[in-house]
Simulated scan of single mutants.
Amino acid sequence: MASNIKQNKNDVDGWFTAVVTNGIIFLESSVSNLSKSPKSSLIDLYTAIELFFKARLMKEHWSLIISKPESAVKQKFESGDFRSVYLEQAYIRLKNICGENIEKEAMDNFKALGEHRNQIVHFAHTGFSGKETEVVIEHWVSWFHLHKLLTNNWADIFSSHLGLIDEIDVKVKLNHNFLKAKFDLIQDEIEIEKKRGSRIVSCTSCGLESAKVRKSHGWGEDIECLVCDVKDLKLKAIETSIPCLNCNKEVKYFMVKDHKCTECQIELASEYALEKYTEIYQEQDPEVRYGDGADPLAYCHKCHIEKQTVLNLEGMWVCVECEDRGWAALDCENCDSFVTGYVEAIRYFACHRCEDEVRKNYVDKWGNI
């Protein structure tokens, strides 16, 4: 940090709030400038992405935001006197230290946006001249991946800011007409793909019937949208319904927006859904995991909630809390927990509930090898 910049002293929580607030300001500016100053909009969006990555690091430990944490001095940090990490450094630390599993498609997109940003800031970028739709699509895809991180992976960390983030999401969606225009233009391309045998489904991002299925799994499909360029996993639909606790109408909980009853609009809590789906699970196969008095529910390795929220529906293990699905569920021999996750890791090492303790015991016994 330049020596002529004076910062007010702040504690870790204060700096976290300041960084998040700054990120939201850049997001707001990015959306506002999208039509009148597209290049400025991309710069602001990339800056916001970098700020949110730094804020996530700060939640793990304040020193991780510093470019050289081994030389970190907390007094200097509290005074804002330090050089912070770049996006690529932040990503590596989130992966190696925090165990964050950020999708490759998301990071590839953020890096590409960073390259656009560098061309604009450090030299010149002529690629977007007169191509407003392409700028909007670039913005749309980056926002899609950032919004997914903030509202899913990092929802607990940024919970107090999700209201403002949702307001920005609404503003981004106002640019949907640009995507619809491209959708109309590429109808011939879509038809050619269909004739080649490709399956075209609705996109998880723009909602248009323009996503090409790249690979199918038991739990969903890998898709690539021909309109907005988003690459994503489209989860398999779960049709099983439960009765609304208010009007008793059957509701397909996993398929309705905000889990609201389509009749009376009351929101069904995940706890209620879990109770009702457990009853259905028992009715479908009363012998499974009940013979020895065991609980039929598993702990989710994705959302790490300290209660069992995963059960078997339509042949898949599904978490009612985070809606992740398709994983194996098995007993961990170390802690006797019934969990989801990578089978080999659980069998030969540990599950997500006991891995820290198992690792510590290993280090205590054998040291760092």
Rank of each mutant, 00 (worst) to 15 (best):
I165V: 11
A273C: 04
T17D: 15
W219E: 09
K6Q: 14
L27F: 11
N175F: 03
V318E: 05
E267C: 01
S202H: 10
G80W: 06
E344W: 01
H304Q: 11
V172G: 04
G80D: 04
E306K: 03
K276N: 03
L34M: 01
W140R: 00
Q282T: 13
S37A: 13
K212Y: 00
D13L: 08
F338N: 02
E287K: 13
R289L: 04
F82E: 01
N96S: 14
W62Q: 08
N152H: 12
S71Q: 15
L245F: 15
S41A: 05
V320S: 11
D295T: 12
C244W: 01
C261W: 09
E287I: 10
K194W: 00
D258E: 14
V230L: 06
H61I: 00
E138V: 07
E70R: 12
L297H: 12
K302Q: 14
E306G: 04
P38W: 02
V339D: 00
T278F: 05
P286Y: 01
D364W: 14
H217P: 06
N334H: 08
N118S: 09
K39Q: 13
H352V: 06
V230T: 07
H176W: 02
C264P: 05
E279M: 02
D166M: 07
H61Q: 04
N361C: 06
K236Q: 07
K173H: 06
A294F: 13
F110A: 08
C225Q: 02
A48N: 07
L149M: 05
V343I: 09
A211R: 00
N8M: 13
E355C: 11
V318C: 11
L51W: 00
F52G: 01
N96M: 12
K252Y: 12
I190T: 02
L245V: 10
E50A: 12
A124R: 15
L297S: 06
W327M: 11
G291V: 15
E323R: 12
Q308R: 10
I25C: 12
H352R: 08
E78S: 05
Q187E: 10
E279H: 03
D331Q: 11
G197M: 02
V230W: 00
E323D: 14
I25H: 14
V256R: 07
W327F: 14
G99H: 07
R117V: 05
N33Q: 14
G326L: 04
S79N: 15
Y86A: 14
R353A: 05
A181H: 06
N4L: 09
K68C: 10
A106Q: 04
T21N: 14
A328G: 14
E287L: 14
L146H: 00
C332G: 03
G197K: 08
